[in-house]
């Protein structure tokens, strides 16, 4: 069976001044289509670095990364941008919406960069907003929305290009527990609808929603538990 994500001996070394920081020390991980995985670890464990590499925001110092059998580790900046655009839907802890444009336009952004014409963009964006239940707020700007609503917009934006994986970095970190619950329900629904979901978190009860928990410690995978 072909993996969706195949990481082999991923090493990431940062240079901070004259010192080398080994963020990842040979990570091996494969994720299958329609898996629901959480990557868990304390801060400084390397989980953010791993997320950046899985999300094609960064490239490993060494090792192989294949996304849908395409070697990503040898791609240049522009190719990575295209992969991020078409294959990865990001959901961030701080939502990362453009503050001065409305929800609909925020959701349209990935479609702009994949060159989809305006009329079709609008239809797709409205459908994605509908999926997260925010149709009535689509013309509101982020500062007119609650935290939970903002994160829903962000999820709609992550979904709009129909990506291979939804990559969520502490998606409930800035939300109260009730709203966090709602957001986690959306991820569960997305998984059940056939999407591959990867959540990065340091909270145990969030991580335990997933079917599989990967523990990271000191740049290595410490545990890989399937429920």
């Amino acid at each position: 069976m072909d993996s969706l994500i195949e990481l082999k001996d991923i090493v990431k070394i940062y240079k901070v001044g004259s010192e080398e920081v080994h963020a990842l020390r040979g990570v091996n991980l494969s994720i299958q289509p329609n898996e629901y995985v959480s990557i868990m670890g304390p801060s400084g464990s390397g989980k953010s670095t791993l997320m950046n590499i899985i999300g094609c925001l960064d490239t490993p110092t060494s090792g192989r990364y294949e996304l849908e059998n395409v070697p990503v580790h040898e791609m240049d900046d522009d190719q990575l941008a295209e992969i991020r655009n078409r294959k990865i839907g990001f959901v961030f802890q701080t939502f990362n919406l453009l503050p001065r444009v409305n929800a609909l336009h925020n959701v349209e952004l990935p479609l702009i960069y994949s060159g989809i014409p305006a009329a079709k963009r609008k239809i797709l964006a409205e459908a994605a907003i509908e999926k997260v239940g925010l149709s009535d707020r689509k013309n509101h700007k982020p500062n007119e929305l609650s935290g939970g609503q903002r994160q829903r917009v962000a999820i709609a934006r992550a979904l709009v290009n129909n990506p291979s994986i939804i990559l969520a970095d502490e998606p409930t970190g800035n939300l109260d527990s009730a709203t966090g619950e709602e957001i986690m329900q959306i991820f569960k629904d997305l998984h059940e609808a056939g999407n591959t979901v990867v959540i990065i978190t340091h909270e145990k009860d969030i991580a335990e929603r997933a079917k599989r928990i990967v523990h990271i410690r000191d740049g290595n995978i410490a545990e890989d538990i399937r429920n």
Partner: peptide, 9 residues
């Protein structure tokens, strides 16, 4: 944000 969503350089 734009880069993360796929804007090339």
């Amino acid at each position: 944000i734009r880069m993360a969503l796929g804007a090339k350089r």
